[in-house]
Lab assay of single mutants.
Amino acid sequence: MSIQHFRVALIPFFAAFCLPVFAHPETLVKVKDAEDQLGARVGYIELDLNSGKILESFRPEERFPMMSTFKVLLCGAVLSRVDAGQEQLGRRIHYSQNDLVEYSPVTEKHLTDGMTVRELCSAAITMSDNTAANLLLTTIGGPKELTAFLHNMGDHVTRLDRWEPELNEAIPNDERDTTMPAAMATTLRKLLTGELLTLASRQQLIDWMEADKVAGPLLRSALPAGWFIADKSGAGERGSRGIIAALGPDGKPSRIVVIYTTGSQATMDERNRQIAEIGASLIKHW
């Protein structure tokens, strides 16, 4: 067993022997301040990774656009098919120029040779490549099948209805392509620590998230040296922004954090800054 596999296998073990965790309302004060600064709703939840206990939450059962955070769930569904012998990570998928959609920095470079399922998941999570996500959605049967996968996990809230990039439209009061912070946090925890996926697939999923290259201005910008984070960000229309993450000190994750916002007129930089400040408060009061 590799060191990384050992780390993920012992996530519940280490967490069980940690000192009790206590909620700190100071972080919620910052979440509410972010709402004021952005002029928009902000949803927040913080779960203990081992027990699933909610440590703090704000608007945990209000719907927010998922945006690209759905790509972690998508690759979880792909990995479940791999575990069941219905898919192979090494299978190569070929596609054409007509398949390319807006923001496809990886797939646009491989029109000639195609990409493997493993490479597509890596591109979808680490670079948020939209064509990679659409190609992977095709392998599982489309958005409705991802929703069905989530329902089978016990998540009857999260739903995907459309493809990239239309799913980022974020129309107010439109339930399409949305989740709730509580539902997303619980589902992410199941994917990373539950028995739904094999140990190898859980490790692969967290490795992809740990290698995320496009979430630097968010929670990662607030992390002290030595902290662990595996995350996936999302951005959408109407001032929408979000991030889902597993993080913790001492090089291992111990909490799940989900943050979503929508309806702001603020710039992307300002949305990023507010999420980073929430992260800084979380870490300060850990």
Results as ranks from 00 to 15, higher is better:
G279C: 15
V42C: 15
A185L: 01
L111E: 08
G142S: 11
L188R: 00
Y95F: 10
L150Y: 11
R59W: 04
N168E: 03
Q203Y: 05
A235E: 03
E210K: 12
A77W: 06
I229L: 14
N98R: 09
H110M: 09
E210N: 12
S201I: 02
P105C: 03
T262I: 06
V258E: 01
S128Y: 01
G85H: 06
K71Y: 00
A148S: 09
A185S: 07
A183I: 10
P217Y: 07
V78E: 03
L197N: 05
L137Q: 05
I54R: 15
K190G: 15
R273T: 13
S96F: 08
R81E: 07
S201A: 11
Y44E: 00
T116G: 04
L28R: 11
R159I: 15
N134G: 02
H285I: 04
Y95H: 05
G85C: 08
L205Q: 00
G114D: 04
E46F: 14
I140C: 13
P105A: 10
D269K: 06
L160I: 12
S68E: 00
P253S: 08
L150M: 15
A245H: 00
E56R: 07
G154W: 04
A222R: 07
L199P: 10
L192S: 05
V82H: 11
I278R: 02
D33M: 07
A132D: 02
G251Q: 07
A84D: 13
L111D: 14
R255W: 02
L146I: 06
D99Y: 09
A215W: 00
E46T: 14
E195H: 15
L120A: 06
G234F: 01
N272F: 02
I243T: 04
K32W: 15
Q88A: 14
D269G: 14
K71M: 00
G39L: 13
L247C: 09
M153K: 11
D36G: 14
L79C: 04
W208Q: 03
K190S: 15
P143K: 04
I171K: 14
L191K: 01
Y103M: 12
F149R: 14
A245P: 01
F149K: 11
L55I: 12
E175W: 13
G226A: 09
E166A: 12
L100M: 14
G85T: 07
E87N: 05
Q204C: 15
R118D: 10
P60W: 14
G141V: 05
R189S: 06
M209P: 00
N98F: 07
E164M: 00
I283P: 03
E195W: 05
E56M: 11
T262D: 12
A222P: 10
K71I: 01
E169G: 10
T126Q: 09
L135M: 12
L218N: 02
A200R: 14
M127Y: 07
G234Y: 02
V157E: 12
R81C: 05
L135P: 00
L218V: 05
E195T: 13
A40K: 04
A148V: 07
G76I: 06
T198A: 09
A77P: 02
F58R: 14
D129K: 01
A215Q: 05
R273S: 13
T131R: 03
L111Y: 13
P172M: 12
I229M: 13
P181Q: 02
D83C: 04
L282M: 13
V31K: 01
G216I: 10
G242W: 00
M66P: 01
V72M: 04
I229H: 01
R202T: 14
A230E: 01
C121Q: 01
C75T: 15
Q204E: 07
L38C: 07
G141T: 09
P143Q: 15
N272I: 04
T131P: 04
R271D: 15
S233G: 10
S233E: 00
L282D: 02
G141R: 12
